[in-house]
Design a protein around this nucleic acid. Structure first.
Lengths: 324, 324
DNA sequence: CTGAAAGCGCTTACAG
DNA sequence: CTGAAAGCGCTTACAG
């Protein structure tokens, strides 16, 4: 009955279950894992810098957006009865990393990997451990991914600025070899092309997804081309915060002189000065999609289609019409 | 030899080890856990709101400070060869929560619990699972804690303001039933008493450790007693951000009209407008202390003394001398 | 010192 | 349908 192989009358079933509950019996998970060859555990990794651990960099502001994703992931995995696991080996030692996953009988893996670690993404796919990537393109017989609609999101940002009359729009995006960053750049190009607005290469900046790097890039841009743009789109809210600092230091008013749009809609946005207009990705869809697809792979053992989470514009005070 | 019970010649040992490595053999952790009655795993929990999960609330700004602690904890546990584990049962269902820890053979637990969940802290201690609390007083035969020096830190903040000539100093602290919050209030009272400065009850505000609540408290304070204080100490940098927003909206200049001090020294501080003077707790000591003490309890099975992490003042642009 | 056996706490395939 | 046995992959206490 307990294993569900037998049909028992509902009342009897309840009484037996009650009796078991009264005893306080809980099956030993370890013994269960050994015999079932699975642990009902999902591993979590934030692929950030070189040689990092699962949680390393979690306190860096560039990662702030993913924190909400993490708690959503936890909620979803909990609902499905899985515990979460964080391997302590750094994934720079990938062989041992995967070996830990296997000898611990981890059922699957969610890997948040917005970074250009193609080798590791590939190695993970090759390991044949069911894996779901967040913000990294990774597909295989037992691997799939969910991704924010970086292209569409950035396009919405540009369209918003175009509607306000802006034509000289700078973009502050991430590293060149980074998927989200290059996709956002694509959205920028797309939206400008659609509107028949020419693109100016010198208004395209690459920086780390980082407040400090964004600040520095902005300082450099202002030094070289101040006055040659009326708006800037940042690849993340944290980058926008860095950019705003540079603008503030130069005495440039936002949004009167320059409009600023962020990306992510982190909870700080309303408290930024000025409150930040931004693009909000659908976090619930992203996190739920990741977990459900992963469970699908684990339980049905088949390939699963990737999905893209949509975005929406959240308008606050950092953007305004062009003033002549 | 492998278990270390036999003495073998070094050279032979190396050759055997090399042969094993060549085979790629890794002992099955699950089988090992079953027979050794331990999993070399440490559970992690962030005790935040009611009925939360291990990671719930991790994306709330009020928790930002602890993120750095988390990655430090991971580094330390990894060095000691432990993997991290996040039970999926909410600790609101505490019996099952503890049961998961036991049936998974978790070796110990690190619980970040700045909140007033005395019952849960007590229940955790009673479970007899080795536990180390961060920012919660919890002691037992197999439990201890590490805590930021909230009293001393807040005292440093006040002393800094006193040295700048401030006498009318408001404090924006956390909930009344919260250990860190009440300790910071104590530091405030201490420092004022030491300087012979009288305390004004109406300048003592309690709010959640939260940007929004801090903002609202500040709005209320300004409405009632604007002009009656020249400085304010917030219980966290995020609360300071909320307070700054309220000041900005009222056209009150920082630091010319009001000086502001935060607490935590999160990485956003230099990017805040104005860059925030704050109190920095020694995060490394906090995290290392937590892990090492926990391992001490696990391995030596004895009680361990708690410890307090010191703080230091980090001066930036949000504080200045009183202007008459 | 070495090697075979017992046992960790379960599940599952199988004999009765 | 029920119950006893085998087995998951290790470690460890024990007989040789």
């Amino acid at each position: 009955m307990l294993t569900g192989t037998t049909r028992v009358e509902e009342e009897t079933k309840q009484r037996v279950l009650a009796a078991i509950a009264a005893t306080g019996y809980e099956p030993d998970q370890i013994a269960q894992s050994l015999v079932q060859q699975r642990s009902r555990t999902i591993a979590l990794a934030l692929l950030l810098g070189e040689g990092g651990f699962s949680l390393s960099g979690i306190g860096q502001s560039r990662f702030y957006f993913y924190l909400h994703i993490l708690s959503e992931i936890e909620r979803e995995t909990a609902a499905a009865g899985y515990d979460l696991f964080l391997p302590s080996h750094p994934y720079s030692d990938f062989a041992r990393y995967v070996s830990t996953l296997k000898t611990r009988r981890v059922d699957g893996m969610i890997m948040i990997a917005p970074y250009p670690f193609e080798e590791r993404v590939r190695a993970m796919i090759k390991s044949n451990i069911p894996t779901l990537f967040v913000d990294a393109v990774g597909q295989g017989p037992r691997a799939s991914y969910v991704m924010v609609d970086h292209i569409g999101g950035c396009r919405q940002a540009i369209q918003h600025l175009l509607a306000l009359g802006h034509r000289r729009i700078a973009i502050l995006t991430g590293e060149k070899d980074n998927d989200p960053a290059s996709q956002r750049l694509l959205g920028y190009q797309l939206a400008l092309a659609e509107a028949g607005v020419g693109m100016d290469e010198k208004l395209v900046l690459h920086a780390g997804f980082d407040r400090v790097e964004a600040y520095e890039a902005m300082v450099a841009l202002l030094k070289a081309y101040c006055g040659e743009f009326t708006a800037i789109v940042a690849a993340s809210d944290m980058m926008a915060i860095g950019a705003l600092r540079a603008l503030r230091e130069q005495g440039i008013r936002v949004p009167e002189d320059v409009s600023v749009v962020g990306f992510d809609d982190i909870d700080l946005c309303p408290d930024i000065d000025p409150p930040l207009t931004t693009i909000r990705p659908d976090k619930e869809v992203l996190a739920q999609g990741a977990v459900r697809k992963l469970l699908d792979i684990i339980e049905n053992n088949g390939p699963v289609a990737p999905s893209i989470a949509s975005t929406q514009l959240v308008q606050r005070a950092s953007t305004g019409p062009v003033l002549h």
